[in-house]
């Protein structure tokens, strides 16, 4: 008969999180191997807590505050999302049709998005945002506790290893950003490089990115 694996219960007992501590204690008292294992786990924990703690430089907090002041002194980007919500509304039907034609949400490959070689510059009166419409929508839903995931872009295509173009690079950044923050309860915080990258996208590029994200999103 297979012996019961007590690893999880022993570990939880040590942390005061066992569901049935009396039962685990009884098993430990009746089994020398379990007692030895529990003792080893206890010693490992003691040893970890005895690891030397770093001496923090007295100026660390000052450095942090100086860094904050430096950021605050720089001109802050305006982050209104209204323009992109409107843009998303106008383009939604066409984008959805295009996504469906290209395989929909289960498509394993990166959808082909045709862009002009040199897209005409689009004059945008409204301030640019660090997010596109879909990124904003995903962020909002994540922050409300909904689980949303993106497919990881494939490293290889049918033709071999893909040379990442701008869209793949941007997608990877968005993917990394949302993947790390998507499963946590913390606010979605964008780093500077991400904000800069989004700010550099023109309207056509944003539309292409939204299309790509739409096709790679789960639970939407």
């Amino acid at each position: 008969m297979k012996k019961h694996d007590w690893t999880e219960e022993l570990s939880a007992l040590l942390d005061g999180e066992a569901a049935q501590p009396d039962a685990v204690q009884r098993a430990v008292s009746e089994d020398a191997d379990l007692r030895a294992r529990l003792d080893e786990y206890q010693r490992l924990g003691d040893a970890m807590r005895a690891l030397p703690k770093p001496d923090v430089h007295p100026a660390f907090a000052t450095r942090v505050m100086a860094s904050i002041q430096e950021i605050e002194a720089a001109p802050a980007p305006v982050r209104s999302l209204r323009w992109w919500w409107a843009a998303a509304g106008l383009g939604a039907a066409a984008m959805l049709a295009l996504v469906l034609n290209q395989g929909g949400v289960n498509a394993p490959a990166v959808p082909k998005v045709e862009l002009a070689e040199n897209p005409s510059p689009v004059v945008i009166e409204e301030p640019v945002s660090e997010e596109t419409a879909i990124v904003a929508r995903m962020a909002e839903r994540m922050e409300s506790g909904e689980e949303i995931a993106l497919y990881e872009a494939p490293e290889e295509t049918a033709d071999g290893v893909a040379e990442p173009g701008w869209l793949d690079r941007v997608y990877e950044e968005v993917y990394a950003q949302l993947e790390y923050y998507g499963d946590t309860n913390e606010p979605l915080l964008y780093d500077d490089s991400f904000i800069e990258m989004m700010d550099e996208l023109d309207a056509q590029q944003r539309q292409a990115l939204d299309l790509l994200l739409q096709s790679y999103m789960e639970a939407v």
């Binding site: 690893t7 570990s11 942390d15 946590t184």
Partner: peptide, 30 residues
């Protein structure tokens, strides 16, 4: 072990269920 967080706190930090934390800590210790 270092921060002394309980399973609920760890679950919040890493964004998973408490049960996952429990089994992951056990596997990590082993």
């Amino acid at each position: 072990e270092l921060q002394g967080m309980d399973y609920d706190g760890i679950a919040e930090v890493i964004g998973c269920r408490k049960g996952t934390v429990k089994s992951r800590i056990a596997r990590a210790r082993e």
